[in-house]
Nucleic acid binder design. Sequence first.
DNA 1: GTAAGAGTGAAAATCTTTCGCATCTTGATC
DNA 2: GATCAAGATGCGAAAGATTTTCACTCTTAC
Lengths: 138, 138
Amino acid sequence: MENQQIKEAGLKVTAPRVKILGILENCGKRHMSAEDVYKELISQDEEIGLATVYRVLTQFEGAGLVCRRHFEGGQSVFELNSGEHHDHLVCIKCGKIVEFVDLTIEKRQAKIAADNAFQIEDHSLVVYGICGDCQNKR
Amino acid sequence: MENQQIKEAGLKVTAPRVKILGILENCGKRHMSAEDVYKELISQDEEIGLATVYRVLTQFEGAGLVCRRHFEGGQSVFELNSGEHHDHLVCIKCGKIVEFVDLTIEKRQAKIAADNAFQIEDHSLVVYGICGDCQNKR
DNA sequence: GTAAGAGTGAAAATCTTTCGCATCTTGATC
DNA sequence: GATCAAGATGCGAAAGATTTTCACTCTTAC
């Protein structure tokens, strides 16, 4: 139940937070921009401002409930933290997003960081391309 | 000489373009935001507007002279196109940027894209961490 | 039940990047 | 060199995403 997760994050259980977490969990799309979440709230007749959506998503991010990603094209997208780090394949035509994990790449990154005396905190790998569907469309 | 490169890009040789390219080539920093370039111009008493800096950098990007990168933290950074694709290691404390190329990773990416029927157009790999210097500072 | 501190909505503010437009330059041509 | 059209520039305004401010409301601890 959402309430539990919010409480564990050290946040008060309020209607906007419960609603937003519910949307992220049940909306079907794993990757949503703040705007997407806001529109979904509107369509559910919820009186929640866009500023609150940003605030709540940022808090959730801080609490580790969601991850924020900056792909090309302006808006950030948020996704529920699935526990396991993963990278993304993004279709530049239709926006489709595929997640993947590749141990070989993770290991090489660790090695490269070590070779340069860097202590890895995070990383972001995004491969932009055209998905199978879009290739066939023309 | 800068003039040649600009001409070859199919652009008129104008003072702002020559100046901006000169800064990118001689400023010491390989990665600069539009704002950085603008400030450098100001400090050289050049009367060039920020809008022009953006316009020129965008044109240079289209002509393949520079690459634009979107790291975390708002601004885009531009770098001279070194001909060879490479990825980045970014220090989240001091902003230091190290470039690297790793064939193993490139190959894995190609394989992953193929497995998912994606036709790769581009990719961005950024590893965020703390560099050796910053680790020692505290 | 109540006070204190959190949380919220709406509007204003920021920040980065782009646009509109009048004016000025460049490069090709006499 | 002078001429001219296409292309560039500068400036302020605009746009888009996100954050902050402020006055008000709600949650939680007691």
